[in-house]
């Protein structure tokens, strides 16, 4: 009675659509776009040709770089927040969250304004004498990675903060009581036990980065292509839906593999933590 409408709705407007579009992966594209229902595996052979394989690999690389940088920034920040006195803590958390609730396109756009050859960052670099003439910051792979880190950083900080904050309250004092140094406490106790938060944060950053097509388009100047751009183009420009669906499926399979890895990791560490 309670479940009926919701399950029916989810089945019709989530499960059926996703299955429908996944079924397209084994069909041909029609002469005028659309789908011709002749079974074929050509889409998969095509997706693994060097052209598209290269895009998959470079997308994974860009998403991984963004995730790694977000982690390098996010972990110390989350740790620092957990160490703040209570009343400062919520203020800083609000400050971290505000940009995240600002429209994603606006946040990306801010980087166009910032990185432009005629923009403020170049003004500053030239003004401070750090560079002789204006340099290309925008429309580079670095700009794409920076943009992804920027838009998803809060998604890294919050889960790590959640796990570190809990540990900070409970465990290290016990460890310190037993004579461990701060550093040893961190390395042997806090860090391993915060790993589930780290993994969650990494997934929260990696997943949307991999499928993103707006950041590469706006900050990459069309010179950096990610798998999300290919899927978008196949659906909305080239109208080769079967091939677009195939690329999307490959992306999702990669992500599912990551989820599986995550659940293994978190299970292992929660077992070690004796729970």
């Amino acid at each position: 009675m309670f479940l009926g409408p919701g399950l029916a709705f989810t089945a019709v407007f989530v499960a059926v659509p996703v299955l429908l579009v996944l079924s397209y992966t084994v069909f041909d594209r029609g002469r005028f776009g659309g789908v011709e229902y002749d079974f074929t595996l050509d889409n998969f052979t095509r997706a693994f040709e060097p052209t598209f394989r290269k895009v998959l690999v470079s997308s994974l690389g860009i998403a991984a770089a963004a995730t790694a940088i977000a982690l390098a920034i996010g972990y110390p920040v989350a740790y620092a927040i957990a160490k703040l006195p209570e009343r400062w803590r919520s203020l800083v958390l609000v400050l971290i969250v505000i940009p995240f609730w600002t429209n994603f396109l606006i946040r990306t756009y801010a980087w166009i304004v910032l990185l432009n050859t005629q923009g403020v960052l170049n003004d500053a670099l030239v003004g401070l004498g750090l560079v002789d003439e204006r340099i290309d910051l925008l429309y580079t792979r670095g700009a794409v990675v920076a943009g992804l880190v920027y838009v998803y950083l809060p998604l890294m900080i919050l889960p790590i903060y959640a796990s570190v904050a809990r540990l900070e309250r409970e465990l290290p004092e016990a460890s310190a009581d037993l004579g461990g140094s701060r550093f040893a406490t961190f390395v042997r106790v806090t860090f391993p036990l915060s790993l589930p938060g780290v993994v969650t944060g990494c997934i929260f950053v990696f997943v949307p980065s991999l499928g993103n097509f707006v950041v590469p388009e706006l900050l990459g100047g069309g010179k950096t292509v990610m798998v999300g751009n290919l899927v978008r183009d196949q659906f909305l420009k080239a109208r080769d839906w079967p091939f677009g669906a195939t690329l999307a499926l490959i992306m999702v399979v990669l992500l599912v593999a990551l989820f599986a890895l995550q659940s293994v990791v978190s299970r292992r560490f929660s077992v070690e933590a004796g729970r």
Binding site: P17, V207, P208, R232, F235, V252
Partner: peptide, 19 residues
């Protein structure tokens, strides 16, 4: 039930467009 929140938005987007 949680699938739409977990699936990449792009996947749901192309699925619904096709549907």
């Amino acid at each position: 039930v949680m699938a739409p929140a977990i699936l990449p938005d792009l996947m749901l987007a192309i699925g619904l467009l096709a549907f």
